[in-house]
Simulated scan of single mutants.
Amino acid sequence: MADPVTDDDGDVVVPRRVLGLDAARGLAVVAMVIAHGVPFISERVSTSGAFVLNQINDLASPLFVLVMGVAAGLVFDRGSATRGIGRATVRGVALIALGVGLEQLNHWVAVILHILGLLLIVGTPLLVLGTRWMVAIAAALFVGSPWVIEAVTRAGGGVAGSVATTADWAANPLVQWLVTNTHYRVLTLLPLFLVGAVLARRGLGDARASWWCALGGLTLLWASFAAELLGHPVVFSGDHPDQVQENGLALAAYGIVMAVDIAAGRRPAVYAVLRPLSLVGQVALSLYVFHVVLLVPLIPRFPEGGWLPFGLLLAVALVTSWAWARFIGRGPVELLIDALSPARRPRAPVGA
């Protein structure tokens, strides 16, 4: 772990970039790019291949939210909570604007940026609470959110997982983003955000916490597989089997990446694996926006799909983002958001 640095306000609250944390964020956004390219090849993969791709798809968003919570926990100073909440609100509004804008383009991606923006606005004020309160809220949301989703959806004239809502009030974007969205919702992402903030308080150099995180995640993942075999499959996005699986994937991936980083230090073999992912993680928002925009011309150009457009999407998006981070530095979207509300961290040096 690097030493803390002092920000422009004189607060010593921000650790320098951590290879494992950036690598975990990079893994999440790479999984998103792969998941959004899957429709090109969905009819060309075997059953086992489809299973692996489904796990990659299910890993992407919860891992990104977990890392987002860790980052929020690292930069949030309870001694200057008002400034931290204000900064998070501005950044959240910027993400909402980006997400809504991307939704207007012609692609098949279920855009998550506006959900993440609202999550940042809702979740950051909770970081003023003590760790036990944050864990309790996360546990309560994990247990109760499926029933809330079902109740709100039913009140809106729909059935969770099968029939869309019909009531006018249920069409409100805030209702959808908070509760009824069929892909992502603040209600079920907030527990992971809070868990990430708790992990940040433990310290990113805590190897025991990382391995317990990995073990807990793998236990949840295997429990989700067992539940499906016993006749309890996922019925709708956000139900208990769905949360157990996705949270398990995120916790396991994050824990393993961080534990490996802590244990291996800068050993060449491990550094060679984590370093490219960490570079991609430093420009994760720019990569997300870029790959969604890239799909707009690719989809009509390859109406039958195939491995070629899938490979082009991955190669162009990932190589471009890696090269940008390696030779230029922070991504354009990150720079734009930092211009609106400066991040409480130092900029990564070019080529670092």
Rank of each mutant, 00 (worst) to 15 (best):
V5T: 15
V13R: 15
R17Y: 03
G20K: 03
R25V: 03
G26R: 04
A28G: 07
A31P: 10
M32K: 10
M32Y: 07
I34G: 08
H36V: 07
I41L: 05
S42P: 00
T47M: 07
N54V: 02
Q55I: 02
D58V: 05
L66E: 05
L66I: 12
F76T: 10
S80N: 12
T82Q: 05
G86Q: 11
G92P: 05
L98M: 15
E103R: 15
I112D: 05
L113K: 02
H114C: 11
L116C: 03
V122G: 13
T124N: 00
L127I: 09
T131P: 00
R132I: 02
A138I: 02
A140D: 07
F142N: 01
P146G: 10
E150K: 11
G158S: 11
G158I: 03
T165P: 04
T166L: 05
D168R: 14
P173Y: 15
V186G: 02
L189W: 13
L192F: 10
L192C: 06
L194R: 03
A197N: 10
R202A: 15
A207T: 10
S210C: 01
T219H: 06
A223I: 06
H240D: 00
H240N: 00
P241S: 12
V244T: 12
A250D: 10
I256R: 07
V257Q: 07
M258W: 04
A263M: 13
R266F: 05
V273N: 04
L274Q: 06
G281K: 08
A284V: 05
A284Y: 03
S286W: 12
L294K: 12
P300H: 12
F302S: 00
L312R: 07
A325W: 01
F327C: 01
V333F: 09
P342W: 04
A343L: 12
R345P: 04
R347F: 13
P349L: 12
